[in-house]
Amino acid sequence: MSSHAVTADHDSHAHHDPNLQHHFAEMEQQFECSKIGMWLFLATEVLLFGGLFVGYGLMQGQHPEAFKSAHHHLDWRMGALNTIVLLVSSFTMVMAVWSAQTNNQKALIRNLILTIGCACTFMVVKYFEYSHKYHEGLLPGAFYSYTGPHQNAEFVFFSFYFMMTGLHGIHVTAGIVVLCYLLVQARKGAYNASYYTPIDLTGLYWHLVDLIWIYLFPLFYLIS
């Protein structure tokens, strides 16, 4: 049947951007498609944490006094420091996207390094906080060995504290890995004004990680 004869040769990509995948017609379509995918992924992240937030809210409602007294074991200055660190990293991330959009290779690399630096600082501060809890015996569940004055159900607070900040920490670590990969690619000159999708998408992810911390900080550190 001759009707399948066509004028367009779908495999000739000679005149295409090398970053264009074969099933997209143009770069813009591919970029928008990736963005939709990322936003959906972020929606799943919100719901993943959402379950924990709801659980926290219910438990806090059942044991308000225990939660209040438990939160005094946390150092709000450490939490505030980490909040600032993450906010700065969000700013440097935005600058990294902007640098890529404006073809500023040097600034792109610099901003990626700054973002990674902030993320690592966050994890170091978190390490000091966790080790402090470890020495006090305020670990979750079966490892809870705190013997000082405390109320019943205080340890549920620490279950949530470690579950939520732990899951958030895993997300920060994953972000660091991805940012390092971007840095390596950026040094090879992989990103420019016509192709910066990975930078843009990682930026979206990074802002969400930041945003989740902005909710975690007052919920755990500032409830009195």
Partner: peptide, 23 residues
């Protein structure tokens, strides 16, 4: 929109089994 909630529920249940987190 629904599956992540099952994911976190499964994780919490495993944590409950493994570490008795009490939730």
């Amino acid at each position: 929109l629904a599956t992540p909630v099952l994911g976190i529920t499964a994780v919490l249940m495993v944590m409950e089994r493994a570490f008795h987190i009490g939730i």
